[in-house]
Design a protein around this nucleic acid. Sequence first.
DNA 1: CCTACCGATCGGTAGG
DNA 2: CCTACCGATCGGTAGG
Lengths: 202, 202
Amino acid sequence: MTEEKPYHHGNLRAVLLEAAVALVGERGPKGFTLREVARRAGVSHNAPYRHFASGGELLLAVAEEGFERLKETMELAVRRGAKAQDRLQLSGCGYVEFALRWPHHFAVMFDLPRELPENCEKGPTGLGAFGVLMGCVEDAQAEGTLPAGDPLPLALTAWSLVHGVAKLAVSGALPMGPERTLEFTWQATAWLSTGLRNAASA
Amino acid sequence: MTEEKPYHHGNLRAVLLEAAVALVGERGPKGFTLREVARRAGVSHNAPYRHFASGGELLLAVAEEGFERLKETMELAVRRGAKAQDRLQLSGCGYVEFALRWPHHFAVMFDLPRELPENCEKGPTGLGAFGVLMGCVEDAQAEGTLPAGDPLPLALTAWSLVHGVAKLAVSGALPMGPERTLEFTWQATAWLSTGLRNAASA
DNA sequence: CCTACCGATCGGTAGG
DNA sequence: CCTACCGATCGGTAGG
């Protein structure tokens, strides 16, 4: 019953974002409501309109926050590798790591294209994270550890693999815990990496 | 305005399933309502209760139908290959083919764990489709074209790859059309296949 | 950022 | 399988 209200000073937007993530995480897209978000934030059901024109725009903001964190997580992961081939695997592990750490963001980013007003941002911002992956592929090509040619199919294949791992892991379809999931990701990306290296051509 | 009503003879259940898929496809999970389904089926908003206790159970039925079709699609695809290695790739292509052909089923199957009453069925039924993939891996191991050992990690990796391709393709994230997507899937699975074949160990 | 207030829709029950 | 009917909730507007 006792609620502190530090958001009266201007951080309501951040509080709303947090509440939105928690709500969509607990009840799913269907249970997500602007009124319930406001309720959890401790404000009137009308206050959110000061910051977002609709529930969809709130979710869009959550997605954008997620894409930014995803990019950062991948960039951080990539730093742990010296060879481009290793960095490619590490970027994939970063991708899965992000999904495991912020599953609700991940869900909003990829499961709610319909809810978002205009997912035109998904391109640009999403490209930031994808760019990390593309960079690794191009570096590996320059190193000669990946075959020359159009890097796009190689990158899309790597993306598909880790996206699948992330999706299945988050939904609980993989028969292992979070730690094992990262080990599995490393193994899986290593196998793919071997295949890409020995590829005839793109 | 003029509606034919053949479902008064007992096929209302099938009509409801069809309407449910169309609805969730058009408006997403959030717009899915038992009343709207009934409306589209041309019956009173209460008629669906004769067949389903809730909207979640209707969606569960859709998911089960989907898992069955997925298994059939994969089994059909696998028949086109002689060598186990080829069949493994073909099963993956069948997976993606299914997702492209019935994207709404695919979405219900994997994006709505929360909506479903008890997704205990996702294991057994889903295992039917996964079993096809596992069978290919085990056959390839017997053939000697895949390294011996626990087939599960190999199968999970293959599953992850095609699941990722399917997810990204359905959401429109892959920069290509449906036909190209299948070609891409064949390419990607070929690369992975090469990697798995040259793997040190599982 | 809040208190009314609106029309619309929903899930579910009653009773047939 | 249908017609009422219920309480609850929602998005959005008015007006401050």
